[in-house]
Amino acid sequence: MTLLTEATPGRRATRPGGRSLPPRGRLGRAALPYLLLLPAVLLELLVHLVPMVMGILMSFKELTQFYIRDWASAPWTGLDNYRLAVDFNAPVGRDLLHSFWVTCVFSVLAVGLCWLIGVTAAIFMQEGFRGRGLLRALFLTPYALPVYAAVITWAFMFQRDNGLVNHVLHDQLGLTAERPFWLLGGNSFAALVIVAVWKTWPFAFLVVMAALQNIPRELYEAAAIDGAGVWQQIRKITMPSLRPINQVLVLVLFLWTFNDFNNPYVLFGKSAPEAADLISIHIYQSSFVTWNFGAGSAMSVLLLAFLLLVTTVYLLVTSRGRRAARA
């Protein structure tokens, strides 16, 4: 992320003379970067920023199926949608709070495991050995697979009667008296975590592997001469070098998992079991299935506010930690 924090010394790509081109005024040259940015800005406005503002406005409206044709004419309701969403004594608020906790636990577990597996695998594969290229290709495959193909396969493995998981646990190892359900009830949470980790850890692996290539070999050689063992080299050289990339990686993984819709949607369908009711699915359900778009928007805004808060605090804390470590 250095490019955001430390701008490189400015050097204008000026064109002394500009012989072969017709001379353009100062204005034309000053406008050029904006022209280059224009398509990106317009697209971001259309698809992200304007809809976001609209979403915030909609959260203050009574937006049910009667008004969906002409959302602007829906009556304003002030904070009613928010009151509904955060009234934890009523069913709607209680379910939302439950879904929020499930998502928190899910994100912490999934991010932690993805990071741990990814970093460990990348460190183990830093040095060459036979078959490393092949193994690397294998490890990246879950990440390359389309979500739906990967998750449908896991859904098949988790089937109660004809799935692999119960075949191994019940038929072959005899660990359970009954064939447990994996996509219903309490076990669905474990199933969701396993699928998410399987699909996402290779991303951590990929990023850390790329970052490891930037650590000069001489550092390790010098440390080895000084008598540092492998473990010490990892602690004193590898991990500190990874700190900046870890800061971004963990944040990105967290935002992805917290907002994850694709995994649970393909695994469970439109209505997730209570134990695995991730917040995106919950909001989708609250708006598109029950047709209460105002409440759904309010929940989305609350979600966005939470993510903004977490991101800001996280960046402040970790950046201070980095600065302290450097000093």
Binding site: L3, L4, A7, G10, R12, A13, A30, L32, P33, Y34, L37, A40, V41, E44, V47, H48, L49, V50, P51, M52, M54, G55, M58, I68, W71, V252, L255, N259, F261, S280, I283, Y284, S287, F288, F293, G296, S297, S300, V301, L303, L304, L307, L308, T311
Partner: peptide, 30 residues
């Protein structure tokens, strides 16, 4: 290029990564 709004642009564009897809799904649809 060094121009006004350069930082705002990069930060804004990156922060859109954070938006929950569910928030702008319905507005975008409309």
């Amino acid at each position: 290029y060094r121009f006004r709004g350069r930082r705002i642009f990069t930060v804004t564009v990156l922060s859109t990564q954070m938006f929950p897809g569910i928030l702008f799904l319905l507005p975008l649809f409309l």
